[in-house]
């Protein structure tokens, strides 16, 4: 597993999921009410991005130019250590606002972990299941883009993806697409009007089972649990990247 790719996934997909968390979870939404604060993460030889809580929402924007609190990391491995809980970050800027980092931000990331790694039985609660699966869906979309752009093997898959948009959706649930241009992938978290190809899960449960490795994508096409169409070579290659998502997020 490549530490650099993992760092990109951890920043743009895992921490990027805070945006969805603050949209979907009422408690989290409340926690950031009235806040206007940004946390910049700068990883040497790796990703840079700013998590910005403002106007009762959260956005992740590239770069760290205008952040209130800055967390520098000397390597991708160290940043990945923050995510797996083995590294404690030391801010280089924003000491006066560190309370947010230690309180609300920590609570938000704990909640995010609860949704991403649900405790036994947690998914039996329909609301929790829906939020968890929706967050997971968007996280995977982001992770696919990062792997396709950074990981050596993922880049090989992306090199076979023609220009266009791959629509990814769950019937009656979340929807997004991967925009491919010049073999670079961008995750877009809004519906796609004119997809070049599509992969649509029939139900939230089918999608969840696929995410959790309980069913196989090839088998799911046969049973109709997953619908694919259009320029299927794009979907094939996205699927090869999807296989690597589970390796990075395991």
């Amino acid at each position: 597993m490549d530490e650099k790719t993992l760092a990109y996934i951890n920043l743009f997909a895992v921490l990027g999921s805070l945006t969805r968390l603050c949209e979907l979870d009422g408690d989290c939404k409340k926690m950031i009410e009235g806040k206007n604060i940004s946390i910049g993460i700068a990883v040497k030889d790796g990703p840079e991005g700013t998590i910005w809580f403002h106007d009762d929402r959260c956005d992740l924007i590239p770069g760290v130019g205008k952040c209130d609190i800055k967390l520098p990391f000397g390597s991708c491995k160290k940043f990945n250590g923050l995510i797996d809980g083995t590294v404690t970050p030391i801010p280089s800027k924003g000491f006066t606002k560190i309370g947010f980092l230690l309180n609300q931000f920590t609570k938000l990331t704990d909640k995010l972990t609860a949704y991403l790694r649900p405790a036994e039985g947690a998914l039996d609660d329909p609301e929790f299941f829906t939020i968890s699966t929706t967050i997971m869906f968007h996280l995977i979309l982001d992770a696919v883009a990062q792997i396709g752009n950074v990981d050596k093997v993922g880049k090989a898959s992306a090199s076979y993806i023609v220009d266009g948009d791959v629509r990814l959706a769950i019937d009656g649930g979340p929807e997004g697409h991967l925009h491919a241009h010049g073999h670079a992938l961008t995750a877009v978290h809004t519906p796609c009007e004119h997809p070049t190809s599509y992969m649509v899960f029939s139900t939230m449960k089918d999608a969840r089972d696929l995410f959790d490795g309980k069913i196989n994508g090839v088998a799911a096409v046969g049973t109709g649990q997953v619908r694919v169409g259009g320029m299927i070579s794009m979907v094939d290659n996205v699927n090869r990247i999807l296989d690597r998502v589970s390796m990075y997020l395991a």
Binding site: V218, A219, V221, G222, R227, V228, G229, I232
Partner: peptide, 17 residues
């Protein structure tokens, strides 16, 4: 996967199934 490989619904691109 029921029928694997090129004669199966996934690799055979059975759209719609």
């Amino acid at each position: 996967s029921g029928i694997y490989g090129h004669q199966g619904p996934a690799e055979g691109c059975y759209v719609p199934i």
